[in-house]
Design a binder for these strands. Structure first.
Ligand SMILES: [Zn+2]
Ligand SMILES: [Zn+2]
Length: 604
DNA sequence: CAATGCGGGCTCA
DNA sequence: TGAGCCCGCATTG
């Protein structure tokens, strides 16, 4: 699903960068917290594929100047007119960072407004744009680590009621007396990362704002699987069966890389619950970030580029040069031909995550996890402490290496680019705690998982993957939205930690604490924090840089806030207020204007 | 029962 | 005014 269009570099992409421009976004974060510094803004990967460079945000293009942004290239979810595209992007399960995607209206994931992240609906008082905010991840209050280094990263229930029930439950780790608690997302200027969905006749537009500052939660399908398992005691069989189906599904999916994402053909089954592999090497690194295996990762220079970019904006991390690459496995064998069904599972994104040193035999693929499960024994499964749902997944830790260039304020978190992968599952664990880590990203299952990985061009493999502390991939840093992190004095290793200075309240301290809690020590190597704004470090402006607010008209609210009835554009709803068209029926002509929006329209 | 969407309403800056 | 967020309701699977 690489974008097709190519003509002029700019046209094709729709950069997210827009988000950056100080003009627009500033407000966002500004509100949230002063002192926000914006990391780099996005650039269009596709076009130039300049390596992610520095972090700083490039100077915003002259406001309004960028003239014609190619309609196709430049748009904002709030624009009255959205460019019609000829090529669609692939759905990204783990979209992170500011990014915009144009998905085919037929995309199941898009229709479901799906995401690997636990996103809950948020009322933005705009019937045409569905807004969802990230619920973060359910973690153990004790931040316990399994012997294998896995951590509890459960998926918070979307339903408030269900979520409340989750909280306070005993940590799935038997040996731990901690309780489950929600690690909220503060990736968007101190607020949860938000996703916006807008439907038109021909496409579904997606826009994300903010960079998740927490590990990926367990994938939805995994949760569902557990839930299903809970009912019966048939762990073994059930698990096996599920795995098998998952594997099959994945395998199938693997065969059709390009289709998975957009088509929705992807398998929805998930691997069984995850548990850390006790037997495996152990480390207590955070799930997505193993800190104890430095050698595994190598920092790559600014060379890694993102794979082909979707036509929409998928911004790699311009901002920050830091990304971690696994070095052990140099480029995994090129497109690691999926070995068996699992390949996809294990390495959805081959490029990013090299296969474990010793990948389990295919045949065993399925068995491994199961073994782990057995090993772990789920005594609790039916017990009080260990509910099936509480089983957590193991994450292979990934060890991030900070790159020194991190100048950008690009927080580590925000700038990394990676294609979505799901958190590791048992399968992965089986693969090993060792090298595989990469984080979480493997695929799991869910709906999404593969979409990205398989499609990557081999090129990437060689390049290495960029990921953030959590191993999350990022579409693009959002200029305005991305929180800025700067290394804090390193308590321990001299390395610094990154803190978010975006939102004072939530504050840096909190961030640091959070990072530490996860065992993240980002060592900003010598590279200090971002320089002064506008300073160095900024990548050269790319042709494709986009600004947030192009010229096009945007919806304007007449009233705001909760007032839903007010439309600004378009003919006023003829009908009664509440029945405005909803997402399904939204816009008709992308090229022109989007349907009228109600008041609280702007997607922030 | 939980996921999803919708939308009223409140609060804060 | 711009946003975030809580809460309840309805639908769906
Ligand atoms: Zn625990
Ligand atoms: Zn989040």
């Amino acid at each position: 699903m690489v974008p097709l269009r190519n003509g002029e570099g700019e046209t094709k992409e729709i950069g997210i960068s827009d988000c950056l421009s100080a003009r627009t976004e500033p407000g966002l974060c500004a509100n949230a917290g002063e002192g926000v510094r914006f990391p780099v803004s996005g650039y269009s990967p596709r076009a130039a594929a300049p390596p992610p460079l520095t972090a700083r945000q490039p100077a915003p293009p002259p406001p309004q100047q960028q003239q014609h942004h190619n309609p196709q290239a430049d748009w904002d979810i709030n624009d009255t007119t959205i460019p019609k595209v000829s090529a669609y992007d692939e759905w990204l399960e783990w979209a992170d960072g500011h990014c915009r995607l144009v998905l085919p209206a037929s995309s199941e994931e898009a229709k479901r407004h799906a995401s690997g992240w636990a996103m809950r609906n948020t009322n933005n008082h705009n019937v045409h744009i569905l807004k969802k905010s990230c619920l973060g991840v359910l973690v153990c209050s004790a931040r316990c680590a399994l012997p294998g280094g896995g951590r509890v990263h459960m998926r918070p229930a979307i339903c408030d009621k269900a979520r409340k029930k989750q909280q306070g439950k005993a940590c799935p780790n038997r040996a731990c007396s901690g309780r489950l608690e929600v690690l909220p997302c503060r990736g968007h200027c101190g607020y949860p990362v938000t996703h916006f969905w807008r439907h038109t006749e021909h496409a579904i537009y997606f826009q994300a704002k903010g960079n998740h500052d927490h590990p990926r939660p367990e994938v939805k399908t995994s949760v569902e699987t557990r839930r299903g398992l809970r009912g019966g005691r048939v762990l073994r069989r059930g698990a096996r069966g599920l795995r098998a189906s998952a594997g099959a599904a994945l395998a199938a999916a693997a065969a059709l890389p390009g289709q998975m994402g957009a088509q929705g053909a992807r398998p929805r089954t998930l691997p069984p619950p995850l548990i850390a592999d006790p037997a495996g090497p152990s480390c207590s690194c955070p799930p997505f970030e193993c800190l104890c295996k430095p050698n595994k990762l190598v920092l790559q220079g600014a060379q890694s580029y993102p794979p082909a970019m979707p036509q929409s904006t998928y911004n790699p991390t311009p901002c920050h040069p830091n990304y971690w690459v696994v070095d052990d496995a140099p480029p995994p064998p090129p497109p690691p031909p999926p070995h068996g069904p699992h390949a996809p599972l294990l390495h959805p994104d081959a490029m990013s995550y090299p296969p474990p040193p010793q990948p389990p035999p295919q045949d065993e693929f399925m068995s491994v996890p199961e073994e782990d499960m057995l090993r772990y024994d789920f005594p609790h499964i039916d017990g009080d402490l260990f509910q099936p749902e509480e089983i957590f997944q193991l994450d292979a830790p990934l060890r991030p290496l900070p790159q020194h260039q991190q100048q950008a304020s690009g927080a580590v978190r925000s700038c990394a680019y990676e294609r979505g992968r799901s958190p590791p599952t048992l399968l992965e664990l089986g693969a090993s705690n060792t090298s595989f880590h990469s984080d979480e990203q493997t695929t799991c299952s869910d709906d999404s998982s593969h979409s990205g990985g398989l499609a990557f061009p081999p090129l990437q493999q060689q390049q290495g993957v960029v990921m953030d502390l959590y191993g999350n991939s990022h579409c693009s840093p959002a200029p305005g939205d991305t929180p800025y992190f700067e290394p804090a004095p390193a308590p321990d290793k001299g390395s610094g930690e990154w803190m978010c200075i975006v939102k004072p309240e939530a504050g840096p301290l909190e961030d640091v604490a959070r990072l530490r809690a996860w065992g993240l020590h980002v060592t900003p190597p010598g590279h200090p924090p971002p320089g002064p704004p506008g300073g160095d470090g900024l990548p050269e402006p790319q042709p494709d840089w986009q600004h947030y607010y192009p010229d096009g008209p945007k919806y304007v609210h007449e009233y705001n806030n909760n007032n839903m009835e007010a439309y600004v554009y378009g003919a006023p709803p003829t009908h009664g207020p509440q029945h405005h068209q909803h997402l399904h029926a939204d816009v008709k002509n992308e090229q022109t204007t989007l349907p009228p929006m109600s008041s609280r329209t702007f997607a922030m």
